[in-house]
């Protein structure tokens, strides 16, 4: 593991210098001569998740083969609109969109529909999916439910205290927490619920305060891995390894922490697999168009230290 970190560091150092060149608008990959289709992929950001999603898309595109035109919106909804317009101008056969946020989605879909280009959404969908060709969505409510069900099983009917360190107030966090609470058994009591703002440092601070207000807490539900690590640091700094952390993610670091038992349970999913699925579904749809959108859920795996090998590879 340490070795791969050093490798990553070295790669990062070189990548930092080359990435500026590589990140120019729309670098093409895939063999364009043999390509059956050209797919425009509009990514939302360059975090771990997005890079692995892109890797999955590119790898799958190589095997079809499909030409992929890339664009990155860098967290900017306005830039996302512009990127989608660019793809339309380039006359791609289909657009795969990882949106910046739900609010900017509607305009992007409308533009694609107007240009008669099928659009496929990854991980985030909107309230109205009528215009899209297909989508592969993460069901955060379901993730919350799965987490609660595991907790019910793990606590085996005993009375337990549960804390929730939520994300930033808003739809995503509410769905996570809502699903979790709705599936929680009668023996589990939520004694603490405060926002960690999807930030590692803030989650750590909240967890420190949790240790003060509710030191006897048995389980902590944290809806993403970053915040999960923040809570973990707080507990480890306080010498508390008895509090079970339930979180959601699937990165190498997360799986490693799970295999060591530092995360009690991890709901793992793979952006790489998501990318693969997005391209294969989109190609199917281009060959056999359907009237109704084809909407799937990203598969998740419940991982504990006993079955870390079952988890999908985060980045292929």
């Amino acid at each position: 593991m340490m070795k791969s970190r050093i490798l990553t560091a070295a790669l990062a150092a070189t990548a930092a210098t080359t990435s500026l060149a590589a990140c120019g608008s729309g670098s093409d990959s895939g063999d364009s001569d043999d390509a059956a289709y050209a797919i425009g992929f509009v990514n939302a950001d360059s975090l771990d998740f997005h890079q692995c999603l892109e890797a999955g898309i590119d790898d799958q595109a190589q095997t079809v083969p499909v030409e992929v035109v890339h664009a990155n919106s860098a967290r900017d909804p306005a830039k996302e609109q512009a990127n989608v317009e660019d793809m339309i101008v380039r006359q791609v056969d289909a657009i795969v969109l990882q949106t910046v946020n739900i609010d900017s989605l509607e305009g992007a879909i409308a533009k694609a529909v107007a240009a008669d280009i099928p659009i496929f959404l990854t991980s985030v969908g909107g309230p109205d999916m009528a215009g899209v060709a297909g989508a592969e969505l993460s069901d955060v409510q379901h993730t919350g439910e799965v987490s609660a069900e595991w907790l019910n099983e793990d606590s085996a009917g005993q009375d337990v205290d549960v804390a929730i360190i939520a994300g930033a107030p808003g739809a995503a966090s509410d769905l996570f927490v809502g699903g979790f609470k709705s599936a929680l058994g009668p023996h589990a009591t939520v004694v603490f619920e405060q926002p960690g703002m999807f930030q590692r440092a803030k989650a750590q601070e909240v967890a420190e305060n949790l240790l003060q207000s509710n030191p006897d807490v048995d389980y902590v539900f944290v809806p993403n891995e970053e915040m999960g690590f923040g809570a973990l640091t707080a507990f480890e700094n306080a010498g508390r390894s008895d509090i079970k952390i339930i979180t959601n993610g699937g990165t190498e670091d997360g799986l490693e922490a799970t295999s060591e038992g530092r995360f009690a349970m991890l709901v793992a999913s793979s952006p790489y697999e998501l990318g693969v699925k997005a391209v294969s579904t989109m190609v199917d749809l281009l060959e056999n168009p359907t009237d109704e959108p084809v909407i799937g859920q990203i598969p998740t795996t419940v991982v504990t230290k006993d079955n870390v090998d079952d988890a999908p590879s985060y980045c292929g």
Partner: peptide
């Protein structure tokens, strides 16, 4: 000091 408390750098810190 912050790093010593957090144990890791992550996006959105500070």
């Amino acid at each position: 000091m912050l790093l010593s408390r957090l144990g890791a750098a992550s996006p959105g810190t500070a």
